[in-house]
Design a protein around this nucleic acid. Structure first.
Lengths: 285, 285
DNA sequence: GAAAACTGTATCCGGCGGACACTGTTTTGT
DNA sequence: ACAAAACAGTGTCCGCCGGATACAGTTTTC
C-alpha cells in the first residue's frame, strides 16, 4: 500500500545475470516473502546482485555508477521530482531509453540512489561505551540526511534495503553489543534512534526551501507555527504556550535532535540497568 | 529541497475569498516565513481559510468534502499513486478539470487529504498522569497511520500543518502540561514520540503489501532481512545475530512500538525527576 | 432583461515512465 | 574468414499525469 499501488509488469528483469549466487536456494523462497521479493526482484538484483559484465556485444559507454551519481546530483540540487530519466540522460548526453540498458526501471534506480547516497557507515570508535558510539552514529546519519534531503521522502514507504543501509544498521547494532539487550531489543533500539534522526531531519529540511536557510529545527517550526497560531490561541492553548515559551529559549545548536536523542539514551540506559539488576538478582536467588 | 524542486506558478489562487480574516495583519508577513507562505498559500487558504460560498453563479454540484473523501478512499485502496485528478473525477462522474474549481492544485488537495484523514485527535482522559495519556495518544496516532498508510509518504517532506494535525500536537502537549518541562522541551518530547509512531508505522506498512498481511513489525523485518542475510552473515555479524535471536522471541503484539515508546517515556521521566530535583535543590539553597 | 459572476466541459500542452522495433557493434563458434 | 548470436544505443509510440485556457450554460444582481 505504501509506494506503488497500480501493479506493474514484473517480467522485465533477466537484466544482468549473475545474481542468485548468494541468495538462498533458487526456487525455494519462503512463502510469505515471495510476493514482496517478486515485486522488487529488480531492486534486489541491482542492489545485491553481482553485476558481471556479459562481454559479447559492444562495450557499454555508460555505467550504472555514472547514472546513479548524476541522478543523485540532480536530486541534491532539485529534489526527487527533479530526477527524471530524460534529465539524467540529458545530463549525460544520451537518450532516455539508453538508461534502461542499465536499470530496469526508475524505482530500482531510486533504490540504488538511496543506497549510494547513504554511503558506507562511519567506523565507530569502540571501547568508549555504547552511548558515545551511538551518538556518533546518529551524527553521521544526520549528516547524510542533511547532504541528501530527498532521502527522506525517498525512503518513506515500502522498499528493499541495500548493502550500505544494512551496514548502518549493522554498525548501530555493533555499538549495542555489550549492553545486555537481546536481539529484538537491540533492533528495536536502533529503530527508535534511527526514527528520531529521520524525524529531526524532516523538520529541519522542512523550512530551508525558500532561500533562507533554516537555523534550528524548533526555531523554524516556531516561526511557521506562530503565523498559524495568531488569533487561534484559544483553540490551541498548550501549543501557543509552548511555542511562545520556546521562542525565548536559547537554541544555538540542534536542541530537538539532542534532547530527543539523550532522552532515548536515558531510557535505554535505565532499561539496561533494570535488566542487569533483574539478572543478578536471579543469579543470586 | 524536499518536495517540489521545480518552481511553480504562485498566482493561481484568489480562489475562494474569505481568508485573511484570522491570519495576522494583511501584507505584514514576518520576513523569513514569507517565502514559504507564498509557495503554500493555496494550502493555507484551503486548510485554514474560511470557505465562504460566493453565491452568484449556479450552485456547485460538487463539494470539497466529497472530493477529498473520494481521494482518500482511492489512496486507502491503492496508495498515493492511485490518486490522480482523472481518477477522482471519474469516481465522481465529473471531468477532471471541474475539480480545479474547488482545489487550486493537487498538492493542496493532498494537504487537505492529510488533514482530513488525520481527523480530530482523541480526547485524552486526564488525571491519570502524562504517561498513560501519551500512550493513548500514541495508540490513536498509530491507528490513524494504520488506516491510512499513504499518510506516511504524504507527510514526508515540507508542508503546512492543518487544523487537525495541529490538534494532535496540541493534545499531546496538553498531556505534558504538568510535567515541569518547559515549552521547547515539551515540543521536543512530542516530536520524539510522534517520530517513533511514524517509524513503526512505516516498518509495519512495509510488508503488508503482497496479499499476506503483516504480523508484527519485527517479524516482517526479520523475514525480509533473513533472506538478504543468507550467505552474508560474515559481513553483517551483529545483524545476523540480532535477527536470529529475535526470531526466537515471542512477539504477540507490537513489540517494537511498545519497547521504543516505553524507553522514550522512561527517558522523559528520568529527565523530569532530575529537573525536579535540581529545582527543589535550588529552592532550598 | 442585460450584465456579471460563477460552474462544468472540451481541448490542448509539456513532461513523465516505459514498450517496442530498429540499426550498429562486438564477440563467439565453426 | 564468416555467419550467428549477443549486446549497445536510438527513434518512435503509447497512456497517463498535472495543469492552462477558452468556452457554453446557469444563476444572481442591478
Amino acid at each position: 500500500m505504501g509506494g506503488d499501488g497500480t501493479g506493474k509488469k514484473i517480467q522485465k528483469s533477466r537484466m544482468s545475470q549473475g545474481a542468485e549466487a548468494g541468495g538462498g536456494q533458487a526456487g525455494q523462497v519462503p512463502e510469505v516473502v515471495a510476493d514482496v521479493f517478486a515485486e522488487q526482484a529488480g531492486s534486489i538484483e541491482l542492489l545485491w546482485g553481482g553485476r558481471g559484465r556479459p562481454s559479447r556485444g559492444p562495450k557499454p559507454a555508460l555505467s550504472l555508477d555514472r547514472i546513479t551519481r548524476t541522478a543523485i546530483e540532480l536530486a541534491d540540487a532539485g529534489g526527487l521530482t527533479a530526477v527524471s530519466m530524460q534529465r539524467i540522460a540529458g545530463e549525460l548526453n544520451f537518450t532516455k531509453m539508453s538508461l534502461y540498458r542499465y536499470v530496469p526501471g526508475k524505482t530500482e534506480l531510486v533504490a540504488l540512489m538511496i543506497d549510494t547516497a547513504m554511503s558506507e557507515p562511519p567506523a565507530l570508535r569502540s571501547g568508549s561505551g555504547w552511548r558515545p558510539a551511538l551518538r556518533e552514529w546518529a551524527g553521521g546519519l544526520s549528516a547524510v540526511f542533511h547532504r541528501h534531503p530527498w532521502l527522506l521522502p525517498a525512503t518513506a514507504g515500502s522498499r528493499v534495503m541495500g548493502p550500505n543501509e544494512l551496514g548502518w544498521v549493522e554498525s548501530a547494532l555493533a555499538a549495542l553489543s555489550d549492553t545486555g539487550l537481546d536481539g529484538a531489543e537491540k533492533l528495536d533500539a536502533v529503530v527508535v534512534v534511527n526514527g528520531h534522526i529521520r524525524t529531526i531531519a524532516q523538520i529541519a529540511g522542512s523550512m530551508g526551501e525558500g532561500g533562507t536557510r533554516a537555523k534550528s529545527p524548533e526555531r523554524a517550526m516556531s516561526a511557521a507555527l506562530n503565523e498559524l497560531l495568531t488569533g487561534r490561541s484559544d483553540r490551541y492553548p498548550a501549543l501557543t504556550a509552548a511555542v511562545t515559551s520556546a521562542a525565548a529559549a536559547d537554541d544555538s545548536h540542534d536542541q530537538a535532535l539532542e534532547f530527543g536523542l539523550e532522552r532515548i539514551f536515558d531510557g535505554l540506559e535505565s532499561y539496561m540497568s533494570r535488566r542487569a539488576a533483574q539478572r543478578s538478582e536471579a543469579d543470586a536467588g
